[in-house]
Design a protein around this nucleic acid. Structure first.
Lengths: 147, 147
DNA sequence: CAACTCCGTTGCGAATCGCAACGCACGAGG
DNA sequence: CCTCGTGCGTTGCGATTCGCAACGGAGTTG
């Protein structure tokens, strides 16, 4: 996997090379949800333990998660999001929004997230594309390649 | 692939079940970039032709791309983003931003996107998480599960 | 009629995944 | 001491998926 995607001179491809493997984004979803330990992830997802170990290792290798020892005898570690990992929040929320909008079952979106300081009934997180310069909301047609 | 991810009662998992396979987001990147034909995708990416055919088929099956005939004799088709597909823009830009920020090579980000109506030198698209109710910029700590 | 284009499909070896079992270090109970 | 339970992975093996290269077929051009 690593070789062919990473050297495509494309930031999207490089990102996917790190977080595009099966289960990886779901592990990160759990991490954003506060989980830190191997057994928590393993119970939350129907993922094989060897695959979970491999995913955690590549995320740690890439600096998305940090592996920190929280006890000796026996040594046990927890996995925490780094700044780099936390910066994937727009991607995660984007997937969340899209699934809610188009793939929800008959009984509506499975999970409800709320901005807890906001009074509005619509206080849900939403991933949107804006212009870093003027702040305007952007569609694909507002953007072009410039280099 | 389909079975285990789709029935996880999680919008993120359901989204990944549709667009989480290897190469899929890169095909969509090209589609956002204006490509529509099989041969264009095949030339743009180092993807095996059988895999490309399979990815296009699942994207069409899920309504992310629409397959439209653009000539008879021989029948030829083009693949266009639907509204559902276009709504993946925040995810794509999120991956793009993250790769630019953390995975760029020595010579900076490989590709530069610009909001062409904006005069600012910082007129680049950015995927951010905001509150649908109040519009405020949100971090993971501002959000909690409410259902 | 031979060459070329566009769009896939097929066959086969290689890589990856899923599942279940095992390993190991430690603490608790009997 | 012996066994059980927990936390955290690793190993083995069959099943799935992928990558590559070759083939096919329908039409167009020289």
């Amino acid at each position: 996997m690593a070789k062919s995607l990473a050297d495509l001179r494309c930031s999207v491809a490089r990102s996917l090379d790190v977080i595009g493997e099966r289960w990886t984004m779901l592990v990160l979803r759990d991490a954003f949800n506060g989980m830190t330990r191997f057994e928590e992830f393993a119970e939350s997802l129907p993922i094989a333990r060897n695959i979970l170990a491999a995913r955690l290792k590549t995320l740690v290798d890439h600096g998305v998660l940090a592996r920190e020892q929280y006890q000796d005898r026996p040594p046990r570690y927890e996995y925490r999001l780094t700044r780099k990992g936390a910066d994937l929040y727009p991607v995660l929320i984007g997937l969340f929004n899209w699934g809610d909008a188009y793939l929800a079952g008959d009984d509506g979106p499975p999970l409800d997230l709320t901005h807890h300081k906001c009074e509005s009934p619509e206080a849900h997180p939403e991933s949107v594309v804006v212009c870093r310069g003027c702040g305007e909301h952007l569609t694909p047609r507002d953007v072009r390649r410039s280099a």
